[in-house]
Design a protein around this nucleic acid. Structure first.
Length: 291
DNA sequence: CAATCGTGGCA
DNA sequence: TTGCCAAGATT
């Protein structure tokens, strides 16, 4: 058994404590898993749950979504945030139909080639939907490994090759076990080994945690990034797109101008939305979600 | 490589 | 009230 020092305890903990998330159920197919993974990028589970249900009820297969204009995906995305993910998912659906016969591909390379699918998401779909053996390295896993193995409170801001190597070195040998290990560590990070106020008393590997054994030393080095939002282009983009989402059809430019008084920033944000394909400027001067 | 890209909840 | 954080990807 090529397991790691944590796997037995973490896997047992997962069996007893895993949340019953719909995309983890046995009847959740690869498309359901892919949709969940895109939605979960930088977005909390509680906010994804209703969006995922509605999305899959409307578009049960990639072909269903591929048949729609991309603007419908953007509208359906509602306020999940990072709306280019809606565009990515729509482009995924069309690529899956055109390149893979309508079925979500099972190879990591093919998944990675889909729009909006990076190293984490490709590994997650290959592992969770197809039971393959891939290192899962998301923000939860990075934090758990930083603490348990490296003995520091937080991982570095940018993911390092050392972290990838570490995650790979811990992979159980059997693919189904490796896949279970991946979700299990993620779940541990999400429920117990949290960013703030970790619940070490409930941790199954507290006796093997380097950070805990060192007395839980505080993070040293520069404070982590200030992700300011108010007054940024992102806020302006959000307001502009909200107007289009909440309108059944095209809107006059005056409706967009009303959401932000600084004209230079407003135009810059609108131009960026058009460049991103999230907004369609019509011939008559009005604006709409993309067809 | 570091900046950019939404939104909402919570300590 | 406000800073921090949430299953990252792209350029």
């Amino acid at each position: 058994m090529n397991e790691n020092p944590y796997s037995t305890a973490v896997l047992a903990w997962y069996e007893a404590n895993a949340r019953d998330l719909p995309w983890r159920r046995p009847d959740a197919g690869p498309w359901s898993v892919l949709v969940s993974e895109i939605m979960l990028q930088q977005t909390p589970v509680v906010r994804v749950l209703p969006a995922w249900e509605a999305w899959l009820r409307r578009w049960p297969t990639p072909a269903d979504l591929a048949a729609e204009p991309s603007g419908e995906a953007v509208r359906m995305w509602n306020r999940l945030g990072y709306p280019r993910r809606a565009l990515n998912l729509h482009a995924c659906a069309r690529a899956i139909v055109s390149r893979h016969g309508g079925r979500v591909p099972d190879s990591h390379a093919d998944l990675l080639a889909l729009p909006g699918v990076g190293p984490y998401t490709a590994a997650a779909v290959a592992s969770f939907a197809f039971g393959q053996r891939h290192a899962i390295l998301d923000t939860n896993v990075r934090r758990v490994l930083a603490r348990a193995v490296t003995g520091i409170e937080y991982p570095p801001k940018a993911q390092t090759k050392a972290e990838v190597r570490l995650a790979e070195s811990l992979l159980p040998a059997a693919p189904p076990v490796a896949a279970r290990w991946g979700v299990a560590v993620m779940e541990l990070g999400a429920l117990v080994c949290t960013a703030r106020s970790p619940r070490c008393v409930d941790c199954p590997i507290i006796d093997r945690c380097a950070w805990h054994q060192a007395g839980r030393p505080a993070h040293d080095g520069p404070p982590r990034r200030g992700q300011t939002y108010a007054g940024t282009d992102r806020q302006v983009r959000g307001r502009l797109l909200a107007v289009l989402r909440d309108s059944p059809g095209p809107v006059p430019k005056s409706a967009l101008d009303a959401v932000w008084d600084e004209p230079v920033q407003r135009e810059r944000a609108l131009d960026a939305l058009v460049a991103d394909g999230l907004v369609d400027p019509l011939e008559d001067g009005r604006y709409a979600l993309p067809g």
